[in-house]
Nucleic acid binder design. Structure first.
Ligand code: FES
Ligand code: FES
Lengths: 149, 149
DNA sequence: CGAAATAAAGATAAAAGACTCTTAAAACTA
DNA sequence: TAGTTTTAAGAGTCTTTTATCTTTATTTCG
């Protein structure tokens, strides 16, 4: 569904939108440790998100990364598009080229509906909403809940 | 979304449910040629579907493969489950283990809905319905329409 | 039974995705 | 400016998926 890279990107952005982190510079190594991701791998993902204007980062002592915009202005769909592209939103279920209403496969009509709902889900999910769920409702964004605070 | 193997499996089953093929033994090499799939690769996929009782096959002269049951009794979901398993129907969007209502991630509620719609799509798609769409409405199951009949 | 056709199986190869290791570049500190 | 910290970048490894090549087993037919 989503690539692992994209999942890490979403988790990272939600993490940076949590009240503890927001408005701070957070080291990639810190995020990596919290979310159980390889630091150097995460570094590349963060960099991708910096390139498209979702995150900012600075190197060096007291460097780190943070949200480039207020959390309510960043949607999950932005991250998905930045990392996985729009394939999942307009690709044929059977992988046939040129998926559209004029040239449908047998699944096209129903699959189009599912895709629209999927798109709506990612479009309606802003980072502040997601972070609020994690923070207020204690929902998880990683395997084991973080109990060390 | 679906693995390439699963896509080939679905295409093959729809092809075998078309009026021209139904009730006949069709050679794997014929299907492979029609659907632009590597014959030996398709042979393994057909064999998987034989194992779970969706297709039957015999070797030798005038051998081939065919639907093990009437087309209206085979659903797309059967093929998906046989090849890709039930991961796409019960896996967390963020890949977290143990996706369920008691232990949700921030996407769980919405993602559960999308997954249910996806499941409904595959459950309501029987091979006779899919084949009828291809046959009657001239919908496609492969890249270029088959014009040689 | 022998020959030909065809699916099944095993081993190998190619491609993509996920992840690691190493080095370089930048920013701060003193 | 020198030293330290931290992100950026490049090359390389590992694993899974996809696909191919070769051999084997089975079936039909003459
Ligand atoms: S053509 Fe297949 S889903 Fe649109
Ligand atoms: S826990 Fe993430 S989708 Fe269910």
């Amino acid at each position: 569904m989503l690539s692992q890279t994209c999942i890490y990107g979403i988790q990272t952005c939600i993490f940076l939108a949590l009240p503890e982190q927001v408005e701070k510079r957070v080291r990639v190594s810190t995020i990596a440790e919290e979310l159980h991701i390889s630091p150097t791998f995460l570094s590349k993902i963060v960099n991708q998100l910096v390139q498209v204007g979702i995150l900012k980062s600075v190197r060096g002592v007291s460097g780190g990364t943070w949200l480039a915009k207020p959390a309510q202005e960043i949607k999950a769909v932005d991250i998905v598009l930045a990392i996985d592209g729009n394939r999942i939103f307009n690709e044929c279920l059977l992988g046939l080229p040129g998926c559209n209403d004029r040239n449908p496969c047998p699944f096209h009509q129903q699959w189009s509906n599912v895709r629209l709902q999927l798109l709506a889900m990612f479009q309606s999910s802003t980072l502040d909403t997601l972070a609020a769920k994690v923070n207020d409702l204690d929902l998880r964004i990683r395997q084991h809940k973080n109990n060390d605070h």
